[in-house]
């Protein structure tokens, strides 16, 4: 399949439910090594995103992503607001003028969005952040693209790699964000940002198939 504007909106609206259902889970992960607000913030942000998309429905793919970005930047706060906000803002620039996204365009959208996360957060692989989920996910998606896999296969590979990356954050010592203040004590906990990223990609893989 190719991803249409409506498929994109369906994914974003489903994310509202995902973050609502995982609000306490993400907040608990954050309480262990951060400040116990990640689930609350993601839920507040995507609830506002859904409301905004319903009351001012954007008519194309790029404008949907831009609307999501602006709402997240305004409503989320913390570090995840600017990071996910910048992700969606940058992602929108990769799909300008497109009516549909094939597998390559979807990966390009994620990749461009991710470059915004890197620029804003300046984290590297191994710092125990969402970068540790995005990096293997994008590598897996690109590898699948190279072997002419379908969108479904590309996204499934990406989601699986994100999940592995998320789990691999557990033994890491945090070097960015509030968790870094814990030093050695940040080891043994799964990073909440990598977890919210993994949930995002899993939902895309589930819906866009």
């Amino acid at each position: 399949m190719a991803v249409s504007r409506d498929n994109l909106v369906a994914w974003i609206e489903a994310l509202q439910q995902v973050y609502n259902e995982n609000k306490e889970y993400l907040t608990k992960l954050d309480a262990a090594i951060g400040d116990a607000d990640h689930g609350i913030n993601m839920n507040r942000g995507f609830t506002a995103v859904k409301t905004e998309l319903e009351s001012n429905p954007p008519d194309n793919i790029a404008s949907v992503l831009k609307s999501v970005a602006m709402t997240l930047i305004k409503k989320v706060g913390g570090a995840s607001g600017p990071l996910y906000g910048t992700f969606f803002l940058r992602a929108s620039t990769a799909v300008t003028g497109k009516e549909e996204l094939d597998a390559a365009a979807v990966v390009s959208m994620f990749e461009t969005g991710f470059s915004g996360i890197i620029q804003r957060g300046k984290a590297e692989v191994g710092d125990k952040t969402m970068v540790d989920a995005w990096t293997p996910a994008l590598a897996a998606m690109n590898e699948a693209l190279d072997s002419d896999a379908s969108l479904k296969e590309v996204l499934e590979k990406g989601a699986a790699a994100a999940e592995q990356g998320m789990k691999d954050t557990i033994p890491l010592q945090a070097k960015k964000g509030r968790a870094s203040y814990l030093g050695e004590r940040s080891k043994g906990h799964q990073d909440p940002g990598a977890t919210s990223t993994c949930l995002m990609l899993q939902k895309a893989a589930e819906l866009w198939s």
Partner: peptide
């Protein structure tokens, strides 16, 4: 919000 950075 409580313990959360304000927004731009």
């Amino acid at each position: 919000d409580v313990f959360t950075s304000p927004t731009p």
